[in-house]
Computed example of a mutant assay.
Amino acid sequence: MPAPETAPPLAAEVDAATRSLDRSLRRLHLTRTDRRAVVADVRADLLEAATQRVPPEALLGPDVDAFAREAVASGGYVAQPRDSARSVVAGLLGLGVGLALGFWLVFWVAWPFFTSRFDLVGHHPEAGLTVAVSGLTLAALLGAVVTLAVALRGRPAAGATLVRVVPMLVLVSVGVVGVGVPLLGAEVAWPVSDEVVVATAALVLVLLVTAPVVAARRWALAASAARGSTSTATA
């Protein structure tokens, strides 16, 4: 006798539905770990339903995005904003504003004050360079931190981002002062034009700000997501 016909597994439909769900969860900015957990749970339900010839559409409904939002809300997951670009733009904007203000403070306020009391050019050239570079670096650092704090106000893990980014930027500032003062004092004859030197220095400065801001933001969001997942699992 021929074997009795069995219910089709609907494996292809289940795979397509879970891929669609994963794309919806990506658009909700769910972390990879949380996204995999949601997809695994839903996939298990879809496979179980498929054994009863129930198609995925019957469980997910016509709007997969709405199902994804409901799954995130009911599971207590927290969507993580992808705002690294926003953070970088804010940091660089603050860097520019800080440099402009720092230039004014250093050369119109601090420099006249110190030169009226010390011969920074004749007897203490290294001290003069240190004052100038340190003042500009400090102003740029403060500008970047302040604008970043304003840009992240009210967003997830804003405080944690600042806690992480400040030490990174401080290390960058120390490195800039430590490298910049000797280079300027040595009056190195660069084999390229002054414009190329300035452009290269500006690009390096942008990278030195961008890298810590992106790293701190992603680190803070990942730590926040991990704490949220632990709290959800404990509850």
Rank of each mutant, 00 (worst) to 15 (best):
L10I: 07
E13I: 05
A16C: 07
T18F: 00
L30C: 07
T31Y: 01
T33Q: 13
D34Q: 12
A37V: 10
D45L: 14
L47V: 14
R53L: 14
V54Y: 02
L59V: 06
R69D: 04
E70D: 13
G75Q: 03
G76E: 03
Y77I: 00
Y77Q: 10
A85L: 14
V88N: 03
A90S: 10
G96E: 08
V97A: 15
L99M: 13
L101N: 05
G102H: 04
V106E: 05
F107R: 04
A110M: 11
W111R: 14
F113L: 13
F118H: 06
D119Q: 11
P125Q: 07
A127R: 04
L138P: 04
A140F: 00
A149E: 04
R153H: 06
G159D: 06
T161F: 03
T161K: 12
L162F: 01
V165P: 11
L169P: 06
L171I: 14
S173N: 09
V176P: 01
V179E: 06
L183T: 08
A189W: 09
V197E: 05
V197M: 06
L203V: 15
L205M: 10
L205T: 13
V206Y: 03
L208H: 04
T210L: 14
V213T: 10
V213E: 03
A216L: 08
R217L: 12
R217T: 08
A220T: 03
L221I: 06
A226Q: 13
A226P: 06
S231T: 13
T232Q: 13
